[in-house]
């Protein structure tokens, strides 16, 4: 008699919202694929299996497979997340995948987050502003920074611009011009950076309205769905207090 428990192999039903706006004949529809589950399988692996073995026309993005590039953000059973960081064992047998809402659809699960992020970065001017940057001697040793502050900046720099916070934000879903947690987090990052010479009044001009920090309704979806566990709610609260004090 064999009493050793054997893990049951299960079949995953992965339904994907398919549509290709570039194809005039394409109609948005759900397509279901069957995939045999495996130990430590991520959704990213499952999608690659589907593309290799079942349907080479399936569109989805990935680069790093390790939660660093932010390309594989998608809606997994209703909630945003990274496919490469989502283990199939944490999901039920039926999995529904959809592209991140709020971004331009390229096709199927692939969205143009880069275009959105660039627009946001240009609008919020998310780079160091300082006088005489052109004359800086790049070979000279930089002025030292307190380790705590450097650590804090590094923490905020961990944002990979995957777009999950935008897809998780009710405000951003209702109001397309809202810069979202990703934008507000970056403004906070430069507000903390001593190399950036901008004043609070200058930051206020960038985020001091309902498309910026005062548009946030504190639904906290960004904080709860961030794949990098960034302290987004804390940062937005900090920025809100600073901007009110201007």
């Amino acid at each position: 008699m064999n009493t050793i428990p054997v893990s049951q192999q299960r079949t995953l039903n992965i339904s994907v919202l398919r549509h290709n706006p570039a194809d005039p004949d394409s109609e948005p529809h759900m397509q279901t694929f069957q995939v045999e589950d495996a130990d430590a399988m991520t959704l990213f692996v499952a999608l690659n299996l589907i593309r290799e073995e079942q349907d080479p026309s399936l569109h989805f993005d990935f680069v790093c497979r390790a939660g660093i590039c932010g390309s594989c953000g998608m809606i997994i059973n209703g909630r945003p997340g990274l496919a490469c960081r989502t283990l199939t064992r944490d999901l039920p047998d039926d999995i529904t995948l959809a592209p991140l809402p709020g971004f331009e659809l390229i096709a199927d699960l692939s969205v143009n987050t880069g275009k959105w992020m660039r627009g946001m970065a240009e609008r919020l001017e998310t780079w160091v502003h300082a006088q005489g940057l052109e004359q800086i001697d790049l070979s000279a040793i930089e002025a030292p920074m307190e380790p705590e502050l450097a650590q804090q900046l590094y923490e905020l720099e961990r944002c990979i611009e995957c777009g999950c916070c935008i897809a998780a934000c009710g405000t951003a879903q209702m109001r397309e011009d809202f810069v979202g947690a990703v934008g507000l987090n970056q403004v906070t990052r430069f507000r903390l950076d001593p190399r950036d010479e901008r004043t609070d009044a200058q930051f206020y001009e960038l985020v001091g309205d309902d498309t910026g920090v005062f548009g946030c309704m504190t639904l906290l979806g960004c904080q709860d769905m961030c794949p990098k566990d960034l302290p987004l709610a804390t940062q937005i609260a900090f920025l809100r207090r600073r901007m009110v004090a201007v």
Binding site: P101, G170, L219, G221, D224
Partner: peptide, 27 residues
Amino acid sequence: KFPANYRQYQRMNTHMAAMRHMDTTLW
């Protein structure tokens, strides 16, 4: 802050139903 038109209501409803997220629902 209220949804201002049908489209915003629809988006919020879809979003809330899909997310099943406590704080979004509380809002």
